[in-house]
Deep mutational scan, measured.
Amino acid sequence: SRSVIRSIIKSSKLNIDHKDYLLDLLNDVKGSKDLKEFHKMLTAILA
């Protein structure tokens, strides 16, 4: 869910600018399909 993804971003080791950017992107995501794609992208970034 959106709140879980937000929590993953906030607890990541990324610097604050990257976190803010990803949180802004997350706010722009519409629909469950796009949310799944965003989660895939985030997982790849944090891997």
Rank of each mutant, 00 (worst) to 15 (best):
L23K: 01
K36N: 08
K19Q: 09
S1K: 12
Y21F: 10
N27A: 12
D17E: 14
T43K: 13
H18C: 10
I9R: 02
M41Y: 11
L26V: 03
L22M: 05
L46Y: 02
N15F: 06
I9K: 00
F38V: 02
L42R: 00
V29T: 09
L42A: 03
D24T: 14
R2C: 04
R6V: 15
T43A: 09
L25T: 06
G31D: 10
L22W: 04
S1R: 13
S3T: 09
K30R: 12
K36F: 14
S3Q: 13
S7L: 11
L35T: 03
D24I: 12
D20A: 15
D24K: 14
D28Y: 11
I45G: 02
A47G: 09
I5S: 01
N15E: 06
F38M: 03
M41H: 06
R2F: 12
D20P: 01
A44Y: 07
L42K: 00
S11E: 09
A44E: 11
Y21V: 04
K30D: 06
H39G: 10
K40H: 10
N27K: 15
R2L: 13
M41E: 06
F38C: 02
G31F: 05
I45P: 01
K10P: 00
A47Y: 09
G31I: 04
N27I: 04
K40L: 12
L25I: 06
L42V: 12
K10R: 08
I8R: 07
M41L: 07
F38A: 01
H18E: 14
I8Q: 07
L46F: 06
E37T: 11
T43E: 08
D34Q: 15
K13N: 15
D28E: 13
R2G: 05
K33T: 09
K13M: 07
M41G: 03
L46N: 02
R6P: 01
S3G: 12
K36R: 12
L42M: 06
E37D: 09
K10Q: 13
I16P: 15
M41K: 09
K40W: 03
S3K: 15
K33G: 08
G31Y: 07
D20G: 13
S32D: 14
N27E: 05
Y21N: 06
K33V: 07
V29W: 04
K30L: 05
L22R: 00
L22T: 00
R6I: 08
N27M: 09
L46I: 11
S32W: 10
L26E: 05
K40I: 13
N15H: 13
I16C: 05
D20N: 15
I5W: 04
K13V: 08
E37H: 10
I16K: 15
H39C: 10
S12I: 03
T43L: 15
D34M: 12
E37Q: 12
I16V: 11
L14C: 02
S7K: 15
